[in-house]
Design a protein around this nucleic acid. Structure first.
Lengths: 200, 200
DNA sequence: CGTCATAAACCGACTGGTTGGTATTAGTTT
DNA sequence: AAACTAATACCAACCAGTCGGTTTATGACG
């Protein structure tokens, strides 16, 4: 194994353990020592790869944002009518949710910390606005292709994003309460229907 | 000032300062010392009134739940058709939001901490389910009084709650982004409309 | 009314432990 | 040997909670 590979591996191991611990116990409660221990890495190694504990957090946040962009472009270059694409998105979320429900927990940590850290706040706001813009764009494409009828695409996108965020939040807080993934599929389908969605 | 009054006053002063600081800086970052300093109270006084830092937190949470109940009964005993009542609720939220937007910030802290503390988790889940039940009840009343047409009141209530939570979350995270209070009024009105809402 | 006993309210210095971060040293790869 | 990686020991700062002692309100009694 080359030096470069080894370095990347310990780095990603630190990130993985940190993400897990942040999601499960919270940022403040998670100590650097515990991350090092969990990753099988010394403190020296940790501070060799990251300048601070906070920098690990923002690295995770940026990874999320990058992943977001990847999914956006994947949907936008996909085929099928808009209602179908939305259904596919919901199904994708549902699948991820069932595979790794705890994956979403760290979102709460991002949001909570954004009240205290301006850098995190900027990223979360950016996240929200990009989702809003993305949804609006998708809806407008649906209108132009004739598969949707929406008067105020801005308002409709806000409604759609709110529903998604609300369900996500409930899924994070009360995982056992309902099958939130399936619910998101149903609710989004209902929403598409009420916007006069035609499957193709 | 009687002993009882004095005691109650310092107690509520501690709670007020703690709520403010929890909302602004987060639970873990807020130290007991800073609360004492902010409330003009010694540490001894603090631990005279509360057994622990965490107990202040759950006291605040319970105060929220109690306030919730008060609002529920207020709406249920109010008059007017269900769509009107919902509109009134939305207007109330809008007003509170404009008066004290930071009031909601501590909700994020409740939610974030519920991932680590089972007691808090129980309360937040209880909160969500009570809202869900309340909305469902309201919607069913709307159906029975003929002002609404809803097939699946459970699903509709979930949708409604998700929208509210989603908008609330966005309002907390991105207060300057939009006029979230007004948006909630518009979106809820739209929702009532789509459920065949008749104003009276 | 004045005095005194009692208990609740309050004070703040102190403690044991933990934390994020640093410095130093040793090992490994190229 | 140069450069990178990792391990250990360590530090200053901070924090939740404790504890012995002080003040204040209250009600009883002579």
């Amino acid at each position: 194994m080359t030096q470069e590979e080894r370095s990347q591996e310990t780095r990603s191991r630190i990130l993985a353990v940190a993400e897990q611990s942040f999601a499960e116990h919270g940022y403040d409660v998670t100590s650097v020592d515990s991350i090092c221990h969990g990753a099988g890495v010394s403190k020296g190694a940790f501070y060799h790869h990251f300048p601070s504990k906070g920098s690990v957090f923002v690295a995770l946040l940026n990874a999320w944002l990058a992943e977001l962009d990847r999914q956006f472009t994947a949907v936008q270059t996909g085929d099928g009518s808009v209602p179908r694409q939305v259904a596919a998105m919901a199904a994708g979320v549902n699948e991820i949710y069932h595979v790794a429900g705890t994956k979403w927990n760290i979102l709460l940590e991002f949001w909570a910390k954004s009240k205290a850290d301006p850098e995190v706040a900027h990223s979360t706001i950016d996240m929200i606005r990009r989702y809003q813009g993305f949804f609006q764009q998708v809806l407008e494409r649906g209108v132009s292709e004739g598969s949707l009828q929406v008067k105020d695409s801005n308002l409709a996108a806000t409604l759609m994003l709110s529903v998604v965020l609300g369900l996500l939040l409930q899924g994070i807080l009360d995982p056992e309460g309902q099958d939130w993934g399936a619910l998101m599929q149903r609710v989004l389908a209902m929403l598409m229907d009420s916007m006069g969605g035609r499957k193709s």
